[in-house]
Computed example of a mutant assay.
Amino acid sequence: MASGFNREVAFMSIFAIALSVIIFVAVSYALFFTVNKFREDKNTDAPAQFHGNNRLELILVVVPVVIVMFLAVLTVRSMAILNPVAEQTTKIDVLGRQFWWNFSYPETKADAGGDVTNGNEMVMPTKQPVALTITSGDVIHGFWAPNIGGQRAAMPGALKTWNVDTDRAAVYQGNCTQLCGGSHANMRYKVVALDQERYTTFLAAAKAYRAPEPAEGSAEARGYELFMKGNPATGALACAACHRVQGTTAAGAAGPDLSFFGTRRTLGAGMWEAMTPEHWEAPDAKAHLHAWIKHSPKVKPGSLMPTYDGSEYEVNGKLVKGGVLTDEQIDDVAAYLRTLKLPEEADYWNNTPVYGSSDAAENAPTPLAKTSSPTPGGKQ
C-alpha cells in the first residue's frame, strides 16, 4: 500500500473490525453460556429473584463508553493526520467539469503567463503530501484516485481541500464518483506520480514552456490558424475560444487545457489511452483524434465540444448546428495539436510504470467506439 492516507485508513478500519469481532465473540459466548447453563431441563427450581445489580449495570454502562471513547480518540488522531494542509506541501488545484478535469499548479507561474495547467493528467511528486484544492465548474463531481487517497466531492462554488500521497512512482487511474450526466462513466483521468527529481524537471519545463511556432506553409501552420480563428465561412468555431495553450493567445477556459497535449497519452478524459512511446504518431491514434475533433459528442455522449461535420449537437438541452471543416483541415488541426509537447526530459510518461500492468499486452490502447461520418445537419 503506497499511500500514507490509505495506510492510515486501513489501520483504523482493521482495528475497528478486529475490535468488533472480539466484542461479537464475547457477547455471543456470554449469550450461549447463559442459555445453556440456565435452560429449563437443567434447572427445575425457579431461579433466585432479585431487582437490580449495581455491579452488572455499572459494567454494562462503563465498558461500552470506554470502547466508544477509545475509538473516538483513534478517529480524531487519524483526522489530525489526514486533514491538515502543511505549509510546505505541494499544492495542486483540481477543477472538474462535464466531463473532464484540469489540474493547475498555483505555486508555479508560467513564464508565458497564468498557472501551469494540464488537462486530464495530474502529475505529482512521490514521498510527500500533496494538498489538493478541489472544485467544480458546473455540477457536483467526485474526485477519486484510490491508489493515492480517498475521495472528495467537487462542488460548484466551494473549495474542498484534500491530502493525497504515494511512495511509488507510477501511473494511477482516477475517476469521477458522483453521477454527473450522460458521460459520468467516461470522466476519467490519470495520476502520474514521479520521484522528486523528475517532478522538479517537469515543473521547470512546464514553467518555461511556450507552444512552438509552426513552420510557414506546413500542415501544422494551417492547423494553428484554424485552431485560433476557426473558419467563419463555414461556421466552424475557433478551438481557442474554449481551450488554453500556454504561450499563445488561446486562453479559453470552457474546455481542458491543451498546452501539453502532445505529451499526454489520453484523449477525451480517458476515452482512449495509448501507453506506447509513439502514441500520437500511431495510425490508430491519428484516427481516434480525427474522429474526436470531427464529432466529439458522438464519441462521448454529453460532450459540449462543437461538431465540425455540420451536424447538430446538444447544448443545455437545445440542438445547435455545428460548423464544417474538411477532413484535410481536421488533420491539420490534429497535426498542430501533436506539436504541443514538453521537452523529452520532461515527458512524465517516459519509463513510468502503469500501476497494475506488468506487460505490454495489458498496456495496449483501448479503442474508441467506431465512428462514421454523420449526415450533415442530422440529429446524432
Rank of each mutant, 00 (worst) to 15 (best):
P277Y: 12
F261L: 01
Y355T: 00
V164Q: 01
L368A: 11
C242W: 06
R222W: 00
A48F: 10
A48L: 12
R198F: 06
S218P: 02
G137L: 07
R210C: 09
R152N: 15
G302Q: 06
Y29I: 14
K321L: 03
C176M: 02
Q246N: 03
L267G: 00
V66I: 14
Y348I: 05
A335W: 00
N175H: 15
Y313P: 03
P306L: 04
G96S: 14
V76E: 06
L60H: 10
R39F: 02
E281R: 05
E8N: 07
I22N: 02
I92T: 08
I81V: 14
M79H: 14
Y172P: 04
L304M: 12
M79R: 13
L304C: 07
M79A: 14
E281Q: 14
S28C: 07
P277D: 09
G113F: 08
D257R: 02
K109P: 06
G356Y: 13
Q88G: 13
R265T: 07
E314S: 07
D167Q: 06
E328M: 01
L203H: 06
P212G: 11
A236E: 11
A48R: 12
L319D: 10
S296K: 07
R152A: 15
A253H: 13
C242L: 05
R7Y: 06
V171T: 07
A170N: 06
P106K: 03
G174M: 11
N102K: 10
Q98E: 13
L304A: 14
G150P: 04
G4E: 12
S311E: 05
M228S: 15
T234Q: 01
Y348M: 06
F99M: 09
Q178V: 15
L19P: 03
A48V: 14
T126L: 11
A251G: 09
H51C: 11
V171Q: 05
M275S: 11
I140W: 13
P106V: 10
A86L: 15
V85A: 14
E344M: 01
E57R: 12
L159Q: 15
T34C: 04
G270W: 06
P47Q: 10
A145H: 11
L82T: 08
S13K: 09
